[in-house]
Simulated scan of single mutants.
Amino acid sequence: MKLGLRSGLARPAAQAPMLDAQRAGAELYGAPRLNAFTLFRPNENALSRVLSDLLSPRGAHGQGTLFLQSLVDELNLPGVGVHEVVTVRREVMTSARRRIDLVVDTPRLLLGIENKPWADQQDDQPGRLS
């Protein structure tokens, strides 16, 4: 039995919702797009890029707020709702022309993160950021 071109194309189009659901499930439980080698290079900016992706609910990890919620729980800070708007920015300039490596902005929380894996914190660094 031969299928015409039209009927052959209609079948995959009808399966699109099921395929979308399977992709979403794979993202949630397996994070197939997450590849540390494409995110990480041995420098502070690259590590900030990795942290930014992990803390963003829209990151390639597909885990939503899981990583951010784990961090704020550990710090005893206000939680993050699943449907809340969360913005994660890198290299945010302050009024003193200094940079904050990561800033996480949620409706109940503004969190600045200084990424110092290969350097000591400078004297009075938190006080000089404003």
Score class of each variant (00 low, 15 high):
residue 128 R to E: 05
residue 71 L to T: 02
residue 89 R to G: 07
residue 74 E to I: 04
residue 125 Q to E: 14
residue 63 Q to G: 00
residue 42 P to T: 07
residue 68 L to K: 03
residue 60 A to V: 06
residue 123 D to H: 07
residue 22 Q to H: 00
residue 14 A to E: 15
residue 14 A to D: 15
residue 35 N to T: 00
residue 50 V to S: 06
residue 33 R to V: 06
residue 12 P to R: 10
residue 43 N to I: 06
residue 119 A to P: 09
residue 45 N to L: 11
residue 55 L to H: 03
residue 78 P to N: 01
residue 33 R to D: 12
residue 57 P to R: 03
residue 77 L to D: 00
residue 44 E to C: 08
residue 102 L to V: 04
residue 79 G to I: 04
residue 33 R to W: 11
residue 62 G to Y: 02
residue 58 R to Q: 11
residue 27 E to V: 00
residue 98 R to C: 08
residue 49 R to C: 03
residue 100 I to W: 04
residue 78 P to W: 05
residue 106 T to K: 00
residue 77 L to A: 01
residue 107 P to K: 08
residue 13 A to I: 12
residue 104 V to F: 02
residue 61 H to T: 03
residue 57 P to A: 10
residue 58 R to D: 12
residue 12 P to N: 14
residue 19 L to Y: 13
residue 16 A to C: 03
residue 3 L to P: 01
residue 11 R to Y: 02
residue 21 A to W: 06
residue 69 Q to L: 07
residue 64 G to A: 06
residue 90 R to M: 06
residue 81 G to A: 12
residue 12 P to G: 12
residue 109 L to N: 05
residue 37 F to L: 09
residue 40 F to C: 04
residue 74 E to V: 04
residue 106 T to A: 00
residue 58 R to E: 09
residue 68 L to E: 01
residue 127 G to F: 07
residue 122 Q to K: 09
residue 3 L to T: 02
residue 77 L to S: 00
residue 62 G to L: 03
residue 6 R to D: 08
residue 110 L to H: 10
residue 21 A to E: 09
residue 117 P to T: 09
residue 94 T to D: 11
residue 42 P to K: 05
residue 95 S to W: 07
residue 4 G to K: 15
